[in-house]
Design a protein around this nucleic acid. Structure first.
Lengths: 342, 342
DNA sequence: TAGGCAATTGGTAGCGCTACCATGACGTTG
DNA sequence: CAACGTCATGGTAGCGCTACCAATTGCCTA
């Protein structure tokens, strides 16, 4: 007895159904969908008609299994809610929405171990490309990236030794530029306030330190950091801590804009004049910086563009054309505003 | 001649390799991994040893194809960068990280058409569950959700007619509560300022209107809206517009906290005393509201918890136990702060 | 005019896994 | 003690698609 046509999977149309309806072989349907130029004009039309009529949508799982390559970009970021990474992800998403590629998102929670675990899992899906935040992977993670067998783009930062490709900017230079700006504006006892001291924040701190030392102004007591997750309320607390240590503080370079905003609010609350008594510089330049009162000087970073560029490079690599430039530095921009206009 | 053992897919170990090494059948390995209790203690150990030694990770694509069900949660949100949805996604992610399920994220950009397209695409993957923001799906989207053949959770809002399950709260009540609070605090010419008037914002506006009419205070000129994407700078502009229309404005209920923050900054800039001259209420209660100066009254919503609860309900449904309560209202909380303490 | 080559199309054989059914070894029961 | 579960395990046959090769056609070259 012939097995009744009981599909395990809910009876959605398959490529065979389309082929039957269009009067062609299944493989021709497959080609018409993926490489239309290799199928004659006429068949292409017939097949398209059958696809439309049946509402056929290819099964990505079957496709991935057969072709040993999933149409998936693995994306690893340390936080989902931090606006900075959300913007990178948005850039990636927007650049990918016109392509057949999906996004597989992973949140490392700033943990190297978690990153290793996720890379392991992602690897099992044979992704088309991997985009990871940061350049400080553990040796194991690095090995996993190198053996992923797909383009890899490290984003947010540039460094000397890419796994494959890189898009970002120099956090060290960003920190130095911010600090030099404060020095030029006439501030002297300039503090560094940093939460969640991940490797990028460390390098911003190093840039701060370089600028301060060059000006003969460095003093370790000016540096206030914590491993705690960054937030606006935390910025407020940290300014209090910093002032308790160094009452003569007359400027702060903040790790990021959340902290800077918290610092600004604390200044209001404590009736500390900004920029007169204390100057403030943030990092990233979220859009609220320009409307804060006073508006806050910040280092503008190109997060969205980093996401777009990373995808463009990965797509080019997938298409076989390794870009000549494997490290792309998108730079940053110092936005001078009222908070440092003494 | 026997075909040389040239795997299409880069030679990663398969379930057959594990089975051979452990001296058992492939199906037993499959079971040991998915339903360990059905395999004897001894074999389980042998298989685990083989898995570890080979570094075997099951191929999710093959698994999905064979079982007609992918271990994927489809998640549809209207924005990736809006902190509110980022927190929902974080809640979903955290709740899912201990499970084998992955997340397939879709950004509808507040477009019904885009939502339909994404549901179509997601459906082709036979997801284990779907979580979608909002309750105002188009008829086509609704049909796609109903025929998805998996648990569906609509989040962020509650309403009378769930596709399957719902977790959220009443935006109408939130808007009314916020407005009633302003009225009780003694404000009379209370404006509504709202950007990107999506359905949830519309209902907050309806709640505002209900409260104002009940108090005999409603005046259409008090309402200022725009379809433009919400942002802090926009809040600043919109307060200017509102004041241009109604110079006697003495309070504002803002659509969300970004707008509220922009309004606050504009008040500082224009030397309008808060809360004395104008009272401000936001919506969502981002953590910066409590440290703003003055701190801003807001409606606290439980975004993270909504994500967690949605996953819990979906997981229960997958396990076969449809929860008795299909609509979960997580409510909200009015946080009274300085911005309305007249 | 035979041979060669490109363009189109199709058949076959998997990709790696699991659903489904079969098997054998044990009790358990009336 | 036959008949009948129950448990642990395995074999077979796909899931829906594409890589690989073969076949056919028409046209061009020598």
């Amino acid at each position: 007895m012939i097995k009744p046509r009981s599909r395990r999977g809910g009876g959605r149309p398959t490529i065979a159904d389309v082929a039957r309806k269009a009067g062609v072989g299944a493989i021709t349907v497959s080609r018409a969908l993926r490489e239309p130029e290799r199928v004659s004009e006429e068949l292409r039309r017939q097949i398209q008609a059958a696809v439309d009529e049946l509402g056929y949508v290819p099964d990505p799982n079957a496709r991935a299994l057969a072709s040993a390559r999933a149409e998936v970009f693995g994306v690893l970021v340390p936080s989902l809610t931090n606006n900075v990474f959300a913007e990178v992800v948005r850039g990636i998403y927007d650049s990918l929405s016109a392509s057949p590629f999906r996004i597989q998102l992973g949140n490392t929670h700033y943990s190297g171990l978690e990153e290793e675990r996720l890379l392991q899992v992602f690897g099992s899906q044979r992704p088309a490309a991997l985009i990871v935040a940061g350049i400080d992977q553990t040796p194991i993670s690095r090995k996993l990236l190198e053996s992923a067998g797909c383009p890899v783009v490290q984003v947010m930062e540039t460094g000397p030794d890419p796994v494959d490709m890189m898009v970002g900017f120099s956090h060290f230079d960003g920190g130095r530029t911010a600090t030099e700006h404060l020095i030029e504006a006439g501030y002297r006892r300039i503090g560094f306030i940093g939460a969640r001291m991940d490797p990028r924040s460390q390098r911003r701190l190093a840039g701060y330190r370089a600028a301060m030392e060059a000006a003969g102004l460095f003093d370790p007591r000016l540096v206030t950091t914590t491993p705690v997750l960054s937030s606006v309320p935390l910025g407020r607390e940290m300014l209090r801590d910093a002032l308790a240590k160094v009452p003569t503080l007359d400027g702060v370079f903040c790790n990021n804009d959340d902290i800077a905003l918290g610092v600004l609010f604390e200044c209001h609350r404590a009736s500390i004049a900004v920029p007169k008594t204390i100057g403030i510089v943030g990092f990233n330049d979220l859009d609220m910086m320009q409307v804060a009162f006073p508006s806050i000087t910040s280092i503008r970073t190109h997060r969205y563009e980093i996401g777009r560029r990373a995808v463009a490079m990965a797509l080019a690599a997938i298409a076989g054309s390794r870009p000549e430039q494997r490290i792309v530095d998108l730079g940053f921009e110092l936005k001078r505003r009222e908070s440092t206009a003494r």
